[in-house]
Each structure stands twice: as C-alpha cells, then as structure tokens.
Nucleic acid binder design. Structure first.
Lengths: 206, 206
DNA sequence: GTCTATAATTGGATAGAC
DNA sequence: GTCTATCCAATTATAGAC
C-alpha cells in the first residue's frame, strides 16, 4: 500500500523505510544501494530496517510489489470513440507513450531487466502488471473499432501488440539505454503520429 | 580485439582474463560478479587481473568494448533483391530477430540497461554498435526498394525504425524481462511473418 | 608479470539495552 | 520497536617476493 501524499510524521517506520528504499532503488538499482544508505535516507537505524524487512532481497521485493501495485499499466481507453478512429488512436498512442517514457517507469524497467537474472520471479510479475495490461486496453479498443467498421483487424491481439510496438518504437529502447534527449513533447507527438499513420495505412478502412 | 578461436595457451594473460570476465559478466551482471571469481575462472591470481586492468570498473568497460567491437549489429542486407520484396523483407526480419534474441545479445542488453545509471557512457557506445547499425542496414535496403518501385516509402529512416520496431515486437521486451519461453523457430518465423505482412500493408505497392 | 598473502573497507546482519 | 554498537563475511585493492 503506497501512500504518497502523507507526511513522514503520520507514517509508520515501515512505510518510511519502504518509501526511502523505493527512491534509492529506483535511482541506483539493487547492487549499488546499501542498507546503510537506505537507513540513512529514511532517518532510522539499520536495525529498524531489519525489524521490518528481513533482508535486502525482501526489502527489494517489497519495493517492487509496491510499485507494481500502483497499476503502472493502467491507462484507460474505454471512453474513446471508435468512429473517430484517427483521433482516438492518437490519444491512445500519446497516453501509452507518456506512460512508458515516464521516469519512474523507465527506472523500474531498468531495474527489473538488470536484476531478472538474480530475481527471476520479478519479470513475470511486472510483465503482468505493466505491458500486459496496456496491451489488453489497446486490444479492447481495437476490437470495438473493428466491430464498428473503423478498422480491418482480423486478430485484435496481434494488432494490439503491433500497435504498441510501433508506438514504443526506438525511443523506448533508447531511453532504457540512458538517452535523456528527445524529451520534448513535440518529438513525442511526432513519434506517436507517425506510428498511428503507419498503423492506419495497414489496418484502416479508407 | 577478440580472438574467440584461440586456445588459452596461445593467449596472453590479459586476453584470458578478458575472456573470463566476459563470460562472468554476461552471465551474472556487474554487481553479482567478484574479481575473485573472475581470477578463479581465468586461472590466474587476482594480482594478475589488477596488473592488466586497474579496477573492476575498467575491466567491465573493457568487456563491453570487446563485445561491442564484434559488431553485434552487423547483419547484411546488401545481397537481397528489392524486386522480390516479400521474400527479402522476410529474410531481413528473420536475421534481425535471430540477432536481437540471441542469448548473448540479450545478456549484453540486460547488463547495459541495468548498469547505465552507474556507467552512463556505455549506453551510447552500445547503441551505436548495435541498434544503430541494424537500422542503417534496413534503411539501405528500403531505400533501394523504394527506388526500384517495390515500396512506397517517403522517409526511409522512419520506415526502417518502424520496421525494426514491428519485428522486435513484444517478444524482445519479454526476453529482456526473463521469459525464456517461445524460443522455438516456429514462433519466430510467425512473428517475423506477421511483422512483414503488416509492414507491406502499410508500405507495399500492390 | 605473476604469485601468495594481506591490508583496508564495505556491507549485510545481529546483540543487547531501553 | 528502536537505537547504538558491533560482528563477520565478502570484496576491492595492494605489498613484497620471485
């Protein structure tokens, strides 16, 4: 349970530690962050950290679970109109891109990918919480659009995957590789627009 | 300089250490591998390791440079016929997919992404050595295909990015997240084929 | 250059008082 | 539950002999 709006004073020590650990791990990864550093940043002793979390691995797992519980993937497409197909796809593309390029999402992705060898369970958990939810949302909309006759989509699941891949494009991978450039909204809108244009050439009705 | 075919006896100690470090880092990442382990695996003393590489960071950087130098990205598309567009695109897609899904490529990607916060320079180096080369190869072919009248591509660079994104698809990200499933060639051929089909619907002439 | 042995430090984890 | 103080193992790095 994450309580981002509460002041430290009203939080239990466990929550304070968890919050500090989250900041630290997201910023530095697993290996580069020590329990000493977390305790220091939380303003408690290391013994207190261990009173609530049995080990560094356990604390790390709790952080990941906490982040995942915030429903990273959840962006909705339910209210969008399948008739106005180009505008709706553009909206979806922008929401999706803003989500996957957000600093916190990038940080979490980096950590999971970097530590999945050491913590094999994390990959699946996070895939379900993130990309899988996103794909489901997109698929739902494409299904509706196909039924409304706005798109020629035979396999909505595959089309949703391809749409997501097109929108993510190179920029997502670049971000994972540490490129901080191209952060301006203009580039994002352009990337999203190009992806939608290509998708519509492949699956559009007109 | 990587000399993968040479026996240990003919290699200098530096090369032996580098090779052992490469195996170790690729298997376990940076944080989980100790200099002791590398020295042991190389069959030399730790002092010898430090005689050739000043620090763990420096050794890690040398490994990354060594891997990058093998031209990870280099797959060629020069000999493919732009007239037989579908077959050629399928060949490109398969080569590209086989490359990015190869265990070594996945391992390197994981490490770079996981450690880019600690080693900011690595990201750019590897991007140039990998994805950028691939994109250039694809772009060159699309350019030729456009000139031959096989494709309706206005912006070859953008089209190459979109082609690469479509082919990589979800499966690449899944692999980075640790999914070892779907490794059979049938799935790969199917993924590549779907990507090419969608790409051709968007950019094909017929 | 290479080894053995060891220094120096870090970092995960705990004991014991309150 | 929380703190101070500490233990202990692992790890980076180096000294000194050959």
């Amino acid at each position: 349970m994450s309580m981002p709006d509460m002041r430290d004073e009203t939080l239990g020590k466990a929550a304070i530690v968890l919050r500090a650990a989250r900041r630290a791990f997201l910023a530095g990864g697993f290996g580069a962050v020590s329990m000493d550093a977390i305790a220091r940043e939380a303003g408690v002793s290391k013994a207190t950290v261990y009173a609530h979390f049995g080990s560094k691995e356990e604390l790390f797992g709790a952080v990941v679970a906490d982040v995942a519980e915030q429903r990273f993937g959840a962006f909705s497409a339910f209210e969008l109109d399948p008739q106005d197909i180009e505008a709706s796809l553009n909206t979806i593309a922008r929401r999706f891109l803003d989500l996957v390029l957000s600093p916190e999402a990038v940080a979490v992705n980096r950590i999971i990918i970097g530590e999945v060898t050491r913590f094999p369970a994390l990959g699946e958990v996070f895939w379900q919480a993130g990309p899988e939810r996103n794909r489901a949302q997109i698929e739902e909309f494409l299904q509706r659009a196909a039924e409304a006759g706005s798109l020629a989509v035979a396999d909505p699941r595959l089309a949703a995957e391809q749409f997501a891949s097109l929108v993510r494009g190179e920029i997502h991978l670049q971000r994972l590789f540490g490129f901080e450039s191209q952060d301006d909204p203009v580039v994002r809108a352009q990337v999203a627009g190009s992806a939608v244009a290509t998708f519509l050439r492949a699956f559009g009705r007109a």
